[in-house]
Design a protein around this nucleic acid. Sequence first.
DNA 1: CGGATATCAGATAAACTGATATGA
DNA 2: CTCATATCAGTTAATCTGATATCC
Lengths: 149, 149
Amino acid sequence: MSTSDDVTQWVGYRLKLAQNALRAAMDEALADIGVTAPQYAVLAAVDSGPGISSAALARAAFVTPQTMQGIVANLEREGLLTRAPDPAHGRIKRAALTARGRAALQRAHAAVGVIQGRMLDGFSAAEVEWLSAALARFAENLRRPRRSA
Amino acid sequence: MSTSDDVTQWVGYRLKLAQNALRAAMDEALADIGVTAPQYAVLAAVDSGPGISSAALARAAFVTPQTMQGIVANLEREGLLTRAPDPAHGRIKRAALTARGRAALQRAHAAVGVIQGRMLDGFSAAEVEWLSAALARFAENLRRPRRSA
DNA sequence: CGGATATCAGATAAACTGATATGA
DNA sequence: CTCATATCAGTTAATCTGATATCC
C-alpha cells in the first residue's frame, strides 16, 4: 500500500509546499517593512479600493469576518491603516491607508516583486497566465456544493 | 496606481487562495476522522517510511524540527502514532502508526481522494502533471540563494 | 568538541466557532 | 423582524526563535 501513497507526489502536497515556500520568502522579505504576507494583501486591497469594509475584505479573501478583523486590527495597531465610521451607515467602518501604510505598501510591492520574479523564473508569461487561471479554478472547484444540498 | 495593483490577479495570491480552499475542504472532510491536513500528510509519510524520525519528517516538509514535533506530539496524544527510542541510537525516536493510526489513514486517503478529484475536475492528467511539476519548481526557485547574488 | 536529535519555553499571526450588539 | 456589520471572548493548530540536554 505504499505505492500510490507517496504524498510528495500529490498535487495538493506540492501546492502546500509551494505556498509555504512563498509565504516564508515573503515573510523574510517583508520583515524589514514590518508586515506579513496576509497583511500585505490587505494593504494592497485597501489601496485598490479605499473605503472598503472589513466584511467586504473578508469576503474577497474567503475568510470569516472575525479572521479579517484580526488582520485589520493588527494593521490598525501598527498605524498602517485607519478605520472611520461611515457617516451615513453608522455601523460600517471604512478602511484607508495612512501615510505610513502607503509608504509600507510601496516598499512591499517592490520586495514582493523580487520574490515573484524568483518564483516564476523560467516560466513564460503564457505559462504563468495558464497556471494562474488553473489555480483560480482549483479554488472555485473546491468551493462548490458542500454536502446534502 | 490601481492598475497593476490588483492583488487578486497575482499568481501568488491565487496560490494562497487555492491552498486555503484546499485546506478548508480537507479539514472539513477530515474532521470526522479527527485529523488535520498537515497531520494527514505526516501520517502518510510515516506509513510510507516507518521508523522515520521527527527531524527527518521536518526536513521533508521544509519546516523546523520544533514545528514538526508539535504536529507529531498531537498525533501521539491522539494515539495515532507511537515513537520508540532507537536501541542503537539512544537519542533518536522512531515513529510508527498505531492500529488506530492506520485505520484513520485509510479513511483519510479515501476522503482526500474525493477532495482531490473535485479540485482537479476538468483538468487532464497531462495538465495536472505539468501543474504539479510547476508547483514543485516554484518551491525550488524560492528556496534558492537568499542574497549576495 | 562538533553535529544531529529531541525538547522545553515562549511568542505570534492566522484561522475557526459562538455569542452579541447595533444599525439600515 | 431580518440582514449585514462589527466586535468581544475563547480555542486551536501551525509557525517561528532561542536555549538545552543528550547522544555518537
